[in-house]
């Protein structure tokens, strides 16, 4: 029982940064912008997040620093792709490389510095319920925030007029423009939201997961977040399934390796990717016809005047 609880706790911790980053990217892509710079924005968020907390001692300041860092990076991306109509794929890749390099520079001052990680919720009686108490009521604030975020995003996309307009821009920017919607401005805001989320997801790593910064500590999580968005067919509900499934299988295979199962460890390490892809593809197949891919995704829009 103890072990199961420990596993679930570590699954939640491993899945949260993926969920936050992927939520932001989902909104960005729904507006028609493909920002491949998630990894770069995350690592910048990690460096600046740790820096903020190390200097002030406040987790919240750290998290805000991470968000701002991610957002600033996404603004560079937006200037290039929306303002100057540069290719989105190339710009996104460049952004990742840039972010990894810059984060090394910024983080150089704090490498090896430890901070106190984000406190976990503790409600005297519910949290101490033997099994399940810690899982439901004993998480750090980021976990609750990430779930609130995806619920809010889902509500925004499908229940509000602004969300409808955002989806419309991603589906057909020519029509959206013809109806008089400011396509580029909407995309700018969506891209900035994506950047802030990626920065926050990056900041989660030093602030709540491992209490220090090392260069390259995001270890490809940004790419996984990007892949999750695609395999989740741009649907928020499925994104939650994908992120937790990925986190769960990565933790479980570690435990399985530790228990000495006679399967090559390389195969075990590949399992999370394999399992997530299979499940999400199966879910996509089950949907009858039609595509949820934003039709304008990744295409440059220049309004004619």
């Amino acid at each position: 029982m103890e072990l199961v609880e420990a596993i679930i706790l570590s699954v939640l911790a491993a899945s949260t940064p993926l969920l936050i980053a992927a939520t932001g990217e989902l909104v960005t892509e729904r507006s028609g912008v493909l920002n491949l710079g998630v990894e770069g924005m995350m690592i910048m968020g990690a460096a600046c997040g740790l820096g903020g907390t190390w200097l002030t001692g406040s987790i919240i300041v750290g998290a805000l620093c991470g968000m701002i860092a991610g957002m600033l990076l996404s603004l560079i991306f937006a200037t290039m792709t929306l303002g100057l109509a540069v290719n989105q794929v190339a710009t996104g890749l460049a952004l990742t490389i840039f972010g990894i390099g810059l984060s090394g520079l910024i983080g150089a001052g704090f490498v090896g510095e430890r901070i106190a990680t984000a406190p976990h919720l503790h409600l005297p009686s519910p949290t101490d319920v033997p099994f399940g108490g810690r899982i439901l009521f004993g998480q750090d604030g980021f976990v609750y925030l990430s779930l609130a975020l995806i619920v809010a995003v889902r509500w925004f996309l499908y229940r509000t007029r602004a969300g409808l307009v955002l989806r419309a821009c991603g589906d057909n920017h020519v029509s959206a423009h013809a109806l008089g919607y400011p396509v580029l401005r909407i995309r700018l805001l969506a891209t900035m939201f994506g950047g802030a989320c990626a920065g926050l997801a990056g900041a989660y790593l030093p602030l709540a997961y491992t209490p220090f910064f090392i260069p390259g500590m995001t270890a490809g999580r940004g790419w996984i977040a990007l892949a999750l968005v695609v395999f989740a067919s741009w649907l928020p509900g499925r994104l939650v399934i994908g992120a937790y499934l990925f986190g769960a299988v990565s933790i479980l295979q570690l435990h399985a390796q530790g228990a000495g199962i006679g399967i090559p460890s390389q195969f075990m390490s590949a399992l999370p990717y394999l399992a997530t892809v299979i499940v999400l593809v199966a879910l996509s197949r089950a949907r009858s016809g039609g595509s949820t891919t934003p039709a304008s995704l990744g295409t440059v829009f220049v309004p004619d005047r």
Binding site: L164, R167, A168, D171, N172, S175, G180, G290, P294, A295
Partner: peptide, 28 residues
Amino acid sequence: ARARGIGMVFQHFSLFDNLTVAENVALG
């Protein structure tokens, strides 16, 4: 233009394939 009461039916439809009929109407 719409605020003044000018309405338009486009030849090359200004519709959104992945949205429902009602959503398309709401956008206009």
